[in-house]
């Protein structure tokens, strides 16, 4: 039972990260019906920028562990949000009215470009995050010892998701995003500036992804230029599990995938961990292609 609870918390912590990245995919998909392959690379970029900033300025020593990491994450989020907007401007906006095939290929190209740009800038080897940025004392919860870091990770992602949910449900901009996701043309007729909405989506999504990137760096301690690919793929899987285009769905899907994968690794086999995630993806698409909370997917009129 202890083992199970520990794995559960582990899964929730990882799932929170998947959920944060999945939100970027699902929001872009919701508004543009485009699978933004390059999102995973923005996540990697967040992790590497965090490392660079930590090298320039020792945030945690000056501002204390929590304040320091908070400021660091905010700065990285801002920088990656700018990159997200640039990405949309360069690689996606010219293809707004092209066939979907072209947009997907462009997204794939942007992903390959960014991944290799990161490799050329930072090198192909694993980079190590400084140790002990945050206190990592075990906390006793439900009778098991859980590392504080894991709990923090989970809480931060839940906090961000709650913030996003509030933003999308309760603000005017959020309403515009939801309207554009339902029907772009109708939204435009209602006086919504869809270009602005898309820009905002490309600010929020990459910012959340970047935060996840820094969190992964702190949590796992090492980062690599290819990590965005596997994380991105799993996050996209999470978005599909929850129902693509659906914001609470992405959160649910992320947490679910994190737990499933951790349990699979713990009780079945670590070597098959990644295969489990994709197996779940295929299963979901076979049994319930629209995901748990999502819209209809099958290609029919």
């Amino acid at each position: 039972m202890d083992f199970f609870l520990q794995q559960l918390f582990n899964g929730l912590a990882v799932g929170g990260i998947y959920a944060l990245v999945a939100l970027g995919y699902t929001m872009v998909y919701g508004v543009m019906k485009l699978m933004n392959f390059a999102h995973g690379e923005l996540f990697t970029m967040g992790a590497f920028l965090g490392l660079t900033l930590l090298g320039v300025f020792s945030f945690t020593e000056v501002l204390g562990p929590f304040g320091g990491i908070f400021v660091l994450i905010l700065m990285v989020m801002g920088m990656v949000a700018i990159m997200g907007v640039l990405l949309e401007r360069v690689a996606y906006r010219p293809l707004r009215n092209s066939p979907r095939l072209s947009a997907i290929v462009s997204a794939l190209g942007a992903s390959i470009f960014l991944q290799n740009a990161i490799m050329l800038m930072y090198g192909a080897r694993f980079q190590v995050y400084p140790h002990g940025l945050l206190p990592n004392t075990p906390v006793s919860l439900f009778g098991v010892d859980i590392p504080l870091l894991r709990i923090l990770l989970f809480l931060v992602s839940v906090f961000m998701m709650a913030g996003l949910y509030f933003f999308v449900q309760r603000t005017r901009i959020g309403t515009a995003i939801r309207a554009a996701a339902i029907d772009q043309d109708a939204a435009r007729l209602m006086g919504i500036n869809v270009d602005r909405v898309i820009q905002i989506v490309f600010i929020i999504g990459p910012a959340l992804g970047a935060a996840a990137g820094v969190m992964v760096g702190i949590y796992y301690g090492q980062i690599n230029f290819t990590m965005g690919w596997i994380f991105g793929l799993k996050a996209f899987t999470a978005a599909i599990i929850g129902g693509i285009g659906n914001i609470p769905g992405a959160m649910l899907g992320g947490l679910l995938l994190g737990v499933l994968e951790t349990m699979g690794a713990a009780y079945i086999s670590t070597a098959w961990k990644d295969a489990i995630a994709f197996g779940v993806l295929i299963l979901i698409l076979l049994v319930r292609p629209r995901g748990i909370l999502g819209e209809r997917v099958a290609d029919k009129l």
């Binding site: 979907r100 997907i104 599909i240 070597a271 994709f278 993806l281 295929i282 698409l285 290609d299």
Partner: peptide, 22 residues
């Protein structure tokens, strides 16, 4: 999976490719 829409098919085929490699 053949009936899936464009990008869904793309992601599933990526998944299949990865499962085979693993």
């Amino acid at each position: 999976i053949i009936h899936l829409r464009g990008d869904y098919l793309a992601i599933v085929t990526i998944g299949v490719g990865e499962i085979v490699r693993i």
